[in-house]
């Protein structure tokens, strides 16, 4: 008889811990043939709010971390993903319903995407900042700063690479994030949370929820302590409604765009999550 394998319990990732949903709910994830795979947690409004609190608490330190430090931490995420490449490949194969060969290429791209973003954190200030030659005896400079807590509704057409593509942009810029994972294929996102938990990413910087997009995304869109929301994974018919709710506190809204996740992102992925701060000081003796 073959050995009975030990299955993993897939839970939420909030504030560095792995709780079940406070609602006690879970939902069934199946493979492309309808076979049972797992029962991940089905997050509730309360879970979403807890995740926002965790992200807000983590924001001061993560945004104040040196760019070099953030860079090293994101590179560390790539290192740990590489060491679990096979597990991710199996997860993506299952999640994206593709063969192992193609899944492997997607995992390679996902790992490389972390490296790409890791290299950005200490370049953005030079590229996007400025000293401004004002007409007076003042030193005046502008610098990019993270917008704050970002809600990321992960894309539905990619279980891992699409998520990492958008998550990396938010992290390298110093934001903290609440992710709502791909609804039908949430498992690679949870596996990623295990990597994040062991990669020196401080607790609360990334929080990952699994569950129903239609149920949870609106709570994030209307949450008054979320500063920006990426609507990537929101169904087309719901985008307008959620974007409207996001105006209650003038969230920065990133509309879904269909794209080939294997392509290198543009800098707008990062600039859309940055604010420009300008500081003045008199010059004199």
């Amino acid at each position: 008889m073959s050995r009975v394998e030990i299955r993993k319990t897939y839970k939420l990732f909030i504030g560095g811990a792995f709780p079940r949903s406070e609602s006690g709910r879970s939902y069934e994830v199946v493979d492309s043939e309808g076979n049972f795979v797992a029962n991940p947690a089905m997050a509730s409004r309360k879970d979403a709010r807890d995740a926002v609190v965790a992200a807000r608490s983590a924001f001061p330190n993560w945004s104040a971390a040196t760019a070099f430090n953030r860079s090293q931490i994101l590179y560390r995420v790539a290192e740990l993903m590489e060491s679990r490449r096979e597990e991710f490949t199996n997860g993506v194969s299952l999640g994206d319903s593709i063969g192992k060969g193609r899944a492997g290429k997607i995992v390679d791209a996902a790992i490389d995407r972390w490296v790409w973003y890791a290299g950005w954190s200490d370049k953005l200030g030079s590229i996007l900042g400025a000293t401004n030659p004002v007409a007076g005896p003042y030193y005046n400079f502008s610098i990019p700063e993270p917008v704050g807590v970002v809600a990321l509704i992960a894309p539905q057409d990619s279980s891992l690479l699409g998520l990492i593509d958008l998550l990396g942009a938010a992290l390298t810029t110093g934001n903290t994030v609440v992710v709502l994972a791909n609804e039908t294929a949430p498992l690679p996102a949870i596996t990623l949370s295990e990597v994040l938990a062991t990669s020196d990413v401080p607790a609360g910087v990334v929080n990952i929820l699994t569950g129903r997009t239609k149920e949870v995304a609106p709570w994030l869109a209307s949450h008054m302590d979320v500063d920006a929301i990426n609507l990537a994974g929101v169904a087309a018919e719901d985008v307008q409604k959620l974007a409207g709710e996001a105006t209650d506190n003038l969230k920065r809204v990133i509309a879904p765009k269909s794209r080939d996740w294997l392509q290198t992102p543009t800098i707008e992925a990062m600039t859309s999550l940055l604010e420009i701060k300008t500081v003045w000081h008199p010059i004199g003796i």
Binding site: N132, V134, A135, I276, T278, V279
Partner: peptide, 16 residues
């Protein structure tokens, strides 16, 4: 978005 250090309400076309 704007922080004035030891001054206040300064404006300039070059300054975001």
């Amino acid at each position: 978005g704007v922080v004035w250090g030891n001054t206040f309400n300064r404006f300039d076309p070059t300054s975001p």
